[in-house]
Write a protein that binds this DNA or RNA. Structure first.
Lengths: 339, 339
DNA sequence: TGACACATTCGAAACGTTTAGATTAGCGTC
DNA sequence: GACGCTAATCTAAACGTTTCGAATGTGTCA
């Protein structure tokens, strides 16, 4: 900027004023400055600017795994929203590990991000302190946190699973296996409640042997399914509360020589673009990823626009049961066949 | 840092020296400073540091669409690699649009990223100038650029498609539809050559009516497939050169009332985690996403470590044909049935 | 005792902006 | 012609670090 100022024979203050529109600059100087900028190929150094104005127009986004299609989609939407608003997004993957998450958040905070969107993992960590300090606004995504009271957008997970399991019950299923992730994050906790309540509402027993948990990965879904399928009285349907794990479920069903939906019905959380193209077409609980991403971005953008004092806002969106053909109705005959 | 210095009754220079290990600090002062840092909860301001040292330990990454599973995986790998090296990653999606890409790159450059990994779109734009200025190192990912001579890691696309199409020919297919993206990016260009050469090597004619192109989206694949399937002499196999588009291909096949592989064989580029779980299990060309991501990150990290003068390095990796059951052998009888 | 080397520590000038407040010029008014 | 007002421009002090070179103190050796 100094060079530009010299070339245009003005002060740096005038150049800055012109660039920021903070003061009126005469036509003549405007002309000279713009010429100098072109000649020199000057680009404003946003780092120096950030240091002075105390804002980086950059936000941090952490998710457990970007390869989980739910997060892929949400990240995509969030990125677009911030892009439109002129913000850059720093992306971090925490790999479902609390220490990693804390490191990533520190990294982001070091770089003076203006705000944070966090699909948190585990409980505890430095997040609580950051929210309490209230220096940088935080929006929780997908996963609430008991101890952290801040803006959030989540799904009504309990209701979504309740509906899905109730659907299975209406089809005639009585023994419904349930595969969950670790229950220290709110969606898994809430989904589990939805499962139990659906059974109870239908007067069915909650059988602990039908509930298996894993660490969100395909292999965990595979192992859990293997266990369920080797029960002496195996379930006629399986609901997987996590998307990557359902791949494992399908592989286990295949490897054990069964087929879906003939031998076992399957439903799961999160929709895929290809859900209705391949066989079986999976019945899923679709999350409104577009809305989730946009709302999360909007909550943060609103804080960044200066609305700091409003009390924390929690947005709860509804899932949608996408009924396809991976769950089959169970008549008395069918039941005895598959049992 | 000023506050820390005051609290510890030392100069800021000493605090800085301790933090950076650039000079030896006596045990006593070290103790006092560390205590002060804890008391105050001091965090070093990386923005101010960046301004002074001229480096941000941040890199920019642009991809056309993060929802394309190939890019999802590669982004994930790259993010992890830079995370390990203590770098933050700013992610941008260019939506296959050159202007958007240019804006994103400017945004990243404004923020003084130390380097750039670009899965470019279109040709031209500001990339060429940036590489020539050589201020920030650039690594091209997946897509080469005639006019831009810099580090790159790409697939041997021509060979990969040659192998896949040759496989189809060996199965007995003679009329093989080909669906490509816009040919202004190198992979599409090279894959097309692979297709043509495979046909020629087998003494088969290259029929232009069997070649359709679209803009990388599912809907484009759908339309292209619809066109191919309504030819009076329709192909017995379709190869889709782009992953999202193959979803459209499958939907078109379904909507038109045909089935794969009975009526039409399908193969495509890029593997999915679920490729071998659902029916039909797609035959695909798998890219070594892990290697691609790591190599790209390594090329850039090497430049960032100071190796600026080495000539541009082009890494070409091999694809792998994953043969599953979405392509069926075509005997004379089968051929007449499907024709 | 003075000179010298060495280890610590410090003062102050950068880095490239923004911005508050000072200065200057131009103009109308009385 | 002095005065005040406005508009345009400038000067200089930040922002929070790093880093160069100087200053200080301590011990060693001739």
């Amino acid at each position: 900027m100094l060079h530009v100022a010299e070339a245009a024979r003005v002060s740096v203050a005038t150049v800055s004023a012109l660039l920021n529109g903070t003061a009126t600059v005469s036509a003549e100087l405007t002309q000279r400055i713009e010429q100098a900028i072109r000649d020199i190929g000057y680009k404003r150094n946003a780092i120096a600017r950030s240091l002075k104005v105390g804002t980086t127009r950059t936000v941090g986004l952490t998710v457990p795994h970007i390869t989980n299609p739910f997060f892929t989609d949400v990240v995509s939407v969030i990125q677009q929203a911030f892009d439109r608003a002129g913000y850059a997004v720093m992306l971090c993957c925490t790999d479902e590990d609390l220490n990693t998450q804390d490191e990533q958040i520190r990294l982001l905070l070091d770089r003076m991000v203006d705000g944070l969107i966090v699909a948190r993992v585990g409980d505890g960590g430095i997040l609580k302190g950051i929210v309490e300090d209230a220096n940088v606004p935080v929006v929780l995504l997908d996963r609430l946190c008991e101890s952290v009271d801040t803006d959030a957008v989540v799904l009504d997970n309990q209701r979504a699973v309740f509906d899905a399991v109730t659907y299975l019950i209406h089809l005639g299923h009585r023994r419904i296996g349930y595969i969950t992730g670790t229950s220290d994050i709110s969606p898994m906790h809430d989904r589990m409640i939805g499962y139990r309540e659906a059974l109870q509402a239908a007067g069915l027993p909650v059988t602990e042997e039908l509930i298996r948990s894993g660490n969100f990965h395909e292999i965990d879904g595979y192992n859990a399914t293997m266990q369920l399928l080797s029960l002496h009285d195996r379930p006629t349907a399986i609901f997987s509360a996590n998307n990557p794990m359902v791949i494992g479920t399908m592989k286990a069903i295949r490897d054990i020589g069964l087929s879906c939906p003939e031998d076992i019905s399957v439903a799961c959380f999160d929709d895929f673009p290809w859900s209705d193209v391949f066989v079986p077409q999976l019945t899923t609980v679709a999350q409104p990823v577009q809305a989730i991403g946009e709302q999360a971005a909007n909550l943060l953008l609103d804080r960044l626009a200066g609305n700091r004092d409003a009390p924390p806002r929690k947005l709860v969106l509804k899932g949608r049961l996408m009924i396809r053909n991976s769950c089959r109705p169970l008549g008395p005959v069918a039941q005895s066949v598959s049992a």
